[in-house]
């Protein structure tokens, strides 16, 4: 059975439909990349999946005992303020909050989970550091660790590598792939990096207000939409490579 099932959903902002007639499924262990142009409704869809925005039509059904508060999420731009005083450990631990319900305090199990996820992402030594003093890449790792704390089943990432340099970006993709393979957590990632999307993902959803394509990556490579998009996307990584070469 599918973990998440979207049947013909539409999503609207104040009466203006931005996503329509969209159907797809996410199964356990899937790695789904959502691709599409700016403003095609990717972030909007992610917001609906995490329950911040209910669809104007249709229903998003969560199965397999997945509950709304068991989804890990890494937002597109975090509106976390620049001067916020919080240690890395405090931030990661706050990911456990959703499993607390009305119980007020963290247990030893929560603290252990937070430590384990920090270890997994190689940030265990930053634990006492102040979140605001970290580099962009470190911050993303911390927020990913927090998202991992919040879920055992489904992880939603909205353009997680924005602003990271090519080397850190590659590491980050690797981490996500490991998480997906080792822990069997389903990953849904919004990405503009089509090359790595077709490399890592098991499924692709090409969004342009509605699904231009949904299926396995194999089929996407063969489809006309996919071939065209992959071709047009290859200009960008070239430019990034030069930038990376200068840096190192």
């Amino acid at each position: 059975m599918a973990l998440v099932q979207c049947d013909n959903i539409s999503i609207a902002y104040e009466g203006q439909t931005v996503v329509y007639d969209l159907s797809f499924e996410i199964h356990q262990g899937d790695y789904l990349c959502i691709v599409g142009e700016n403003g095609s409704g990717k972030s909007t869809l992610v917001k609906s999946l995490i329950g911040l925005k209910s669809p104007s039509k249709g229903k998003i059904i969560l199965n397999d005992g997945l509950r709304q508060n068991e989804i890990g999420y890494l937002p597109q731009q975090n509106d976390v303020q620049k001067d916020f005083p919080a240690s890395v450990y405090e931030v990661v631990l706050s990911g456990r909050l959703n499993s607390r319900g009305f119980r007020p305090f963290y247990t030893a199990g929560d603290k252990k989970a937070a430590k384990e996820n920090m270890q997994l992402l190689g940030i265990e030594r930053l634990g006492k550091n102040c979140f605001r003093d970290l580099s962009g890449g470190q911050k993303q790792r911390v927020l990913l660790a927090r998202a991992l704390c919040a879920t055992k089943k489904l992880l939603l990432l909205d353009e997680p590598v924005t602003g990271l340099d090519p080397i850190v970006t590659a590491e980050f993709y690797q981490l996500i792939k490991e998480v997906n393979e080792k822990s069997k957590i389903a990953v849904v990632m919004v990405s503009h990096d089509i090359e790595s999307a077709v490399r890592d993902a098991s499924h692709i959803l090409h969004l342009q207000e509605t699904a231009l394509f949904f299926g396995t990556t194999e089929d996407y490579r063969k489809s006309p939409v996919g071939r065209q998009f992959i071709k047009s996307g290859q200009i960008q990584p070239e430019a990034e490579k030069t930038a990376g070469g200068e840096r190192s």
Partner: peptide
Amino acid sequence: NKIFAITFDETFAQATGV
């Protein structure tokens, strides 16, 4: 703990059911 979460990042807190 909940006050910390919504002070730090309201969207994430909301997304995870707070």
